[in-house]
Design a protein around this nucleic acid. Structure first.
Lengths: 339, 339
DNA sequence: TTGAAAGCGCTAACAT
DNA sequence: ATGTTAGCGCTTTCAA
């Protein structure tokens, strides 16, 4: 069926025919892949313009298994987390500059979903992948890596394999936050953790414990709560903490969403920050200054993480044998007035 | 080159050979496309499992131009805007349920970038597209639509063509916000708009003006500022407003990011909300309650918008001739304490 | 029920 | 400088 509005999707054949040349010549014009007589080139280019011809990327990829598909995969755990959105922006800017398009997959911390998306990415023959694996043992990502797909990990590494990774000093970051609280003379400092199996959660826990110890405070298991890294768990776990017989006087929130959830609970209870309970967050947000009160937080250079990861991935795609690298970035304590 | 870790990507041929059948039979097994002897089927399925064979989606798409690629394109103007992130979540949930993967493209309100991404999406032979066009005349999207690609618009429609669209009552939403301010006896109500060429900006402006008029307030051009829909423009334009000889006593912010930008400026100036200046935002955020002060806002059902758009797109893909639909959703005024 | 073979649109080796 | 052609992995007639 066809009507006057039909934008026929043309192909090499059609262009070649209209231009009176062979499809090989058209291909050469498109890819600047060999000398083409300049008259021929002009003629072909005109036809391409007239027909609004766009080469079919699918065919190109099928044919040219080793050539670039100009497609990068991005696998992130939670699109609702502003941290990952910033990382994504960094990736995207670099990808765009280098003429790569992105297939973004958000697996919502769900391993089944992750597997499905990785299968799709693989069979779409992407050029490379930026991933935050579900944990350090993530077999799905490891298999892909072993299969030769260029991969850069962000936020979380992979154990037992050689892989590029870009992340922050989680332990130091957590230490600086909790140490800051301790120095302000808070005595009962709680930690609301994200998913316990994440390396970042573990490292932040370690920093938390070390800071307590360094300040002669004892680690109270009742003050450490583990959740699922999402907003709702911040709401719930903060509530549990505040209902403790002996509640905390300060809370260290393990990520962005947990912080926002905890704030919600504190405000709903009508408590004052920092008088009734202080709070410090891991992950800064650009609107942290507008929170009530302005949030003191450990800032991760999220945009930068994305940018570096994408740059590294492109380097690796172009030279798969280059040595792998770990890029560990520093965090920064942004002091405002929530503690 | 090959080593013991190589995950050879197998193909139909290999499976067929190992199973002692033809590739056609393997294809039939994979697609349940025709009667296959159950012994043969079992044998083939076993080989597929052993080889961890995944059919190549690229080849499938090339071959089968009319069959599903199970790929949807999503074209959004600004990944930093939490509104679009929520829309995205809605789209993603529906897509996942229906076994579609998403290629997400964030064009950052940049028409050049939009064009590039649309070209890519088209030549990736996606099954359908959810887009928030740059404006109602967006030729890039219109051309794709005319070319027969199933498209659903969100947040912004397209003029002069028949297209499915899911959006909210922008005019009513803005009216309710500004009317609420006027009823609270604010007299100099400013409007910080997003990009003036966006239909949503225009409709919100209209609602703003109508509410003023309905409350016997005159429209003061000096109190209406147009920006680019981003955080930074909220910062700047709010600053301009507050430096006016006769500054506003209340601000209606045209979207999420503008609201956060305006809040930032107000706080940096040390002004009290709502005493010194009141603010009301278009777009609620789930952490609005934790802002200083808790933000009064017009809520758009963002997740729902994404969900409906994706559902409609899938319906259209399965039946391209179905009549187009506009789904206009209601907004809700969430009253907190910023005015 | 199964197999052989054409062809989707493209690139690259080879031929001219 | 340009054309011819094989083949990427798959689905789908058509034949057996």
């Amino acid at each position: 069926m066809s009507n006057e509005n039909d934008y026929k999707v043309s192909n090499l054949n059609e262009v070649a025919e209209k231009a009176g040349v062979s499809i090989a010549t058209v291909s050469r014009v498109i890819n600047n892949s060999a000398k083409v007589n300049s008259d021929t080139r002009i003629k072909v280019e005109q036809v391409i313009k007239d027909l609004k011809f766009k080469p079919n990327r699918v065919a190109k990829r099928l044919r040219n298994k080793n050539a670039s598909s100009n497609l990068l995969g991005v696998l992130i755990p939670d699109i609702q987390n502003p941290f990952y959105v910033e990382v994504l922006r960094g990736i995207e800017d670099v990808a765009y500059e280098n003429k790569y398009a992105l297939i973004m997959c958000n697996f919502s911390q769900d391993e089944k979903k992750e597997k499905l998306y990785l299968d799709i990415l693989q069979s779409e023959s992407i050029d490379g992948l930026i991933a935050a694996p579900v944990n350090e043992q993530d077999q799905n990502v490891i298999n892909l890596l072993k299969g030769g797909l260029p991969i850069v990990c962000v936020d979380r590494g992979l154990s037992g394999v050689d892989v590029d990774v870009v992340l922050v000093e989680n332990r130091n970051g957590a230490f600086s936050a909790v140490d800051y609280l301790a120095k302000l003379d808070y005595k009962r400092i709680a930690y609301i953790s994200g998913l316990p199996q994440l390396p970042s959660s573990q490292q932040r826990l370690q920093g938390y414990e070390e800071a307590l110890t360094a300040n002669n405070l004892k680690v109270d298991k009742a003050l450490v709560k583990f959740g699922d890294s999402r907003h709702e768990s911040g709401v719930t776990l903060c509530n549990e903490l505040l209902q403790l017989p002996s509640p905390p006087d300060a809370i260290f929130a393990g990520n962005n969403l947990i912080t926002l959830g905890a704030l919600e609970t504190i405000h709903k209870k009508g408590l004052m920050i920092p008088k009734d309970v202080a709070i410090i967050g891991f992950d800064d947000m650009y609107w942290s200054i507008s929170l009530n009160p302005p949030l003191t937080a450990v800032r991760q250079p999220a945009y930068e993480i994305g940018k570096r990861a994408a740059e590294q991935l492109i380097l690796r795609i172009n030279d798969p044998s280059r040595p792998t690298m770990s890029m560990i970035m520093k965090t920064e304590l942004i002091i405002r007035s929530s503690c």
